[in-house]
């Protein structure tokens, strides 16, 4: 696995799309900090980038890369190494390069312009989102034979998590506001990793009040250390479960 990881990482380190992504993030981050006089405002802009753009890029890059290296993956699969070692090496290399790109484009400007606890929370949740959506992308690329279909499903999944699910949840909460739905709100929010990340960051900047009724509920639950740990644990599940399914799919897959 380490050998596949090493060479995949060398390949990804010279990948123009990956380098472009790192530079784009750096440009956006620096741009926001330079244009906004108040670093807090720039930070809130960056939160939107992390919530919307980072999952999309992580997912699409993983899916497209998965299809692009399919023939080479076949060549690896006829070597005397197991399938788990191949996928493990590739997944690890993809995750490390996406995290490095994010560290360079987002982490570095945050460290320079806004070295706060909340910036650290954004970096951690952003990294978790990268891993979640890269894991989902891996599973999608392995489950679908056609690249166009894989990319389409990836876009659909991202759109659901970034917008549709959140809107549905809000609608549900308002529609059923006269009923005892509190116990359901937090578990339902946890079903969307983007929602979960958004809540974690927003609570940290004490903007939960802006989130209205749901904000109060989230604050009550996630505001505690235990609640935060549950949120992080749930994000971990969002990484582990798709990856476990991806390994299972790859082991039985006809290449």
């Amino acid at each position: 696995m380490i050998k596949v990881f090493k060479y995949t990482l060398i390949d990804l380190a010279r990948n123009r799309a990956m380098l472009g992504y790192a530079l784009l993030l750096l440009l956006v981050s620096e741009g926001l900090f330079q244009l906004e006089g108040d670093p807090m405002k720039a930070f809130l802009g960056l939160v939107q980038v992390v919530i919307a753009l980072v999952p999309l890029i992580a997912m699409l890059f993983t899916i497209v890369y998965g299809y692009d290296v399919l023939e080479f993956t076949q060549l690896l699969a006829v070597q005397p190494i197991g399938r788990s070692a191949i996928l493990g090496g590739q997944v690890l290399a993809l995750s490390v390069s996406l995290l490095l790109a994010q560290g360079f484009g987002l982490g570095l400007p945050l460290l320079v312009h806004f070295p706060t606890r909340v910036a650290l929370v954004l970096t951690v949740t952003g990294s978790a989102l990268v891993l979640v959506f890269s894991a989902l992308g891996t599973l999608i690329a392995l489950s679908q034979r056609e690249k166009a279909r894989g990319v389409g499903i990836g876009l659909g999944v991202w759109f659901v998590f970034v917008l549709v699910y959140d809107a549905l949840l809000m609608w549900l909460m308002f529609a059923l506001s006269d009923r005892p739905i509190e116990p359901w709100v937090v578990p339902l929010a946890a079903l969307d990793p983007i929602d979960l990340a958004r809540i974690m960051v927003m609570l940290e900047v004490d903007l939960a009040a802006m989130m209205g009724y749901s904000g109060a509920l989230y604050k009550e639950f996630f505001g505690s250390t235990g609640g935060m740990a549950v949120a992080l644990g749930t994000l971990m599940l969002w990484i582990v479960v798709p990856i476990a399914f991806a390994f299972r799919t790859f082991r039985g897959k006809d290449l």
């Binding site: 050998k3 060479y7 990948n15 023939e71």
Partner: peptide, 30 residues
């Protein structure tokens, strides 16, 4: 598969590696 050599119909390799690096990689993996 240690004893098997395979030449596929269609080949595609990691774009950013060189021919020499690819040979070294496969030797290393084996």
């Amino acid at each position: 598969r240690t004893v098997i050599g395979y030449m596929p119909q269609i080949s595609q390799f990691p774009a950013a590696l060189t021919i020499g690096q690819l040979f070294h990689m496969m030797q290393d993996i084996r």
